[in-house]
Design a protein around this nucleic acid. Structure first.
Lengths: 203, 203
DNA sequence: GTCTATATGGTGATAGAC
DNA sequence: GTCTATCACCATATAGAC
C-alpha cells in the first residue's frame, strides 16, 4: 500500500504554521498511544499531509519529540514564575508553585504527558536542551525553599528532599489525573500543599 | 538473517525454570530499553534460546509484560504487609510502609521500573489482574491512614489525598533513583516520611 | 520443547519528479 | 514544499521437522 492509498487524497495539502501543527498532533498521539506506538504515518495522516512532508520540517522522529519537550518546559517555567512572583509570604509562593504547575498540566495535558512519560527505558539519552530546561525549572522551586528556610519563615530542614517530594507529587498526577474528571488539577495541588504545610503529626 | 545466525548456536539449549528466567531477562530489558524497543529476539538472545522457544512458554509479548507486573505487585504487597504489621503506633506503620516500599523497589529495581513505567500511552489497557493487584496494594495504605485518623492518633483530614501523596513520592522515585548511587532508597523514604509527619509550617 | 524457516506487514527514512 | 514510490530493515507470530 502506498501513502496515496492510505491518505485517500492525491492533491498537495498546504497548511499554515506547519511545524506547530505537526508538533500539536504528534504530542496528542504520543500521549495517547505512546511514542513508539505512534508512526510518522499516523502523525502525517492526523495533520493531513504525507510522511515525506513531515520530513521536510523535521529530520527525525526523535527531533519532534525533543522539540515538544523543550517548548513545554520553557512555557511551564514562564507560566509558573509569573504566578510565584506575586506571592508575598513563603508559604504562598510554594502554594502558588504547586497550583500553577497543576493548572498548566491540565491546560496542556497531552503535551505534558508526552513531556513526563516520554518513551524508552532508563538508558534513554536526554537532549542537552531538555536537561537544561529541566534544571532551570527545578531551580525555581529549590531557590524558593532555600530562601524560606534561610529566612526562618518555614521549617524545611532538607531542601533537596522537600523539593523532590513536591515535584514527585505533581509529576505523578499526570499518571492518574483525567482532564474530564470532576475535580480540577489545582484542587488536588491545594490538597497536597495543605498536607505538606500542616504535616500529620498530632499536636 | 535467520535465528541461527543471530544466536551463533544451533544446538538446543535447555534451561531450568524457563518461565522465571524469561521473565527476569525480559524485565531487565524492558526497564533499560523500554518495552517497545525490546524485541522478543533480544529476550531470546539474553536467555540463550530461540524466539520460537519463548513462544512455547508465553503466547504474546504482552503476556510476558502482564505477568511481570502482577507477580511484582503481589510480592510487593506481601513484603510490605509483613513489615507494616510489626508496627505499634500509627506513625510507625506509615513509616514502615514507605521504607518497605522503597526497599522493595531497590531490591527489585528492573522489574519495578517495568511495573511503574510500563509502555504505551494513556489509552493503554490494563489487565484485570493488574488492576486487582494495584487496588489491593493501595488499600493497605488507605486502611492504615483511615484507622489512624479514626482513632485520633494522627491528623489526616484528607485520607485519599494523603494516600495519593505518599504513593506519588514513592512511585516517582523509580524515575530518578539509581541503585548504584550513594544513598539507599530507604533513606530517601525516611526523609519523605519526616517531611510529611512534621510539615513545614513554623510553630 | 527446541529448533529452522517463513509468513505477513509495518517502520523510519530517502530519491527524485513536479 | 509537497508528492509518489521505494529502500532496507525488523517486528510479532506461526508451521512443521526433530
Amino acid at each position: 500500500m502506498t501513502d496515496r492509498e492510505r491518505r485517500q487524497v492525491g492533491r498537495p495539502a498546504t497548511i499554515e504554521a506547519p511545524r506547530e501543527t505537526i508538533l500539536a498532533h504528534a504530542a496528542s498521539l504520543f500521549a495517547t498511544m505512546g511514542y513508539e506506538n505512534t508512526s510518522l504515518q499516523d502523525v502525517a495522516r492526523a495533520v493531513g499531509i504525507s510522511k515525506a512532508a513531515v520530513y521536510h520540517y523535521f529530520s527525525t522522529k526523535q527531533q519532534i519529540y525533543d522539540e515538544i519537550v523543550v517548548v513545554m518546559l520553557q512555557q511551564l517555567e514562564a507560566f509558573v514564575r509569573e504566578r510565584v512572583e506575586k506571592a508575598e509570604r513563603s508559604e504562598d509562593g510554594i502554594r502558588a508553585f504547586m497550583v500553577a504547575h497543576a493548572t498548566f498540566m491540565e491546560e496542556n495535558f497531552t503535551e505534558f504527558v508526552t513531556l513526563l512519560h516520554g518513551h524508552g527505558g532508563t538508558s534513554r539519552v536526554r537532549s542537552p536542551g531538555e536537561i537544561a530546561a529541566r534544571d532551570s525549572y527545578e531551580t525555581v522551586l529549590r531557590t524558593m525553599l532555600q530562601q524560606a528556610q534561610d529566612r526562618g519563615e518555614l521549617n524545611i530542614d532538607n531542601v533537596a528532599s522537600a523539593s523532590r517530594a513536591i515535584l514527585s507529587m505533581l509529576n505523578w498526577m499526570s499518571r492518574w489525573f483525567r482532564p474530564d474528571g470532576e475535580r480540577r488539577a489545582a484542587e488536588f495541588a491545594e490538597d497536597y500543599f495543605k498536607l505538606l504545610y500542616m504535616g500529620f503529626k498530632r499536636r
